[in-house]
């Protein structure tokens, strides 16, 4: 059963589903706490000017406030999740990270491709890949949509908006 749990997230309104595994919560809590601390003790002091004018609060006030809240709440989340972990022994849900990671890599590729090679060249590949991924199997459809759509967008952008896509 481990690692093969079906995906529990659906297209719910805000992605909050009722059964996030405590392991995931524990991991999230820890990551957030660490990032919060990194923000408080490295990012903000080095990259935000902390001097304040009269009557004003410093530019670092709001970032610090937000970072503190995230750190404290993240720690709380981690602790409560840790307690739940100890109570029941839930299954690890690492697949939760796989999907975002894959799309993350895809996004970087898309960005680099469009910026360096060009919208009209890269997007057909992306769309074709997407169509295959989503289950389209009919090659004529794939080619038609993948080629025509980005081309149409490119032409529309130029003729309607006088904007050249990269």
């Amino acid at each position: 059963m481990a690692g093969t749990q079906p995906e529990k997230t659906q297209d719910s309104k805000d992605g909050v589903e009722n059964a996030t595994s405590p392991v995931v919560n524990l991991a999230s809590g820890c990551v957030l706490t660490l990032m919060g601390l990194a923000g408080l003790f490295w990012l903000i002091p080095n990259h935000v000017d902390a001097s304040a004018g009269s009557y004003d609060v410093s530019p670092a006030f709001m970032p610090n406030l937000a970072a503190w809240v995230v750190t404290l709440l993240g720690a709380t989340l981690a602790c409560s999740a840790a307690l739940k972990c100890r109570a029941a022994h839930p299954v690890s849900n690492w697949p939760a990270l796989v999907v975002p990671a894959i799309w993350g890599i895809a996004s970087i590729a898309i960005y680099l491709g469009v910026t360096n090679i060009g919208f009209v060249y890269v997007m057909p590949l992306v769309v074709a890949a997407g169509l295959l991924l989503s289950g389209q199997r009919s090659w004529p459809t794939i080619v038609a949509i993948a080629v025509l759509f980005p081309l149409a967008i490119d032409l529309a952008a130029w003729h309607l908006f006088t904007v050249q896509l990269p």
Binding site: G15, V24, P100
Partner: peptide, 10 residues
């Protein structure tokens, strides 16, 4: 995506 999979509200 990460938030959807870890149960945080986007």
């Amino acid at each position: 995506l990460l938030m959807r999979h870890t149960g945080f509200s986007i």
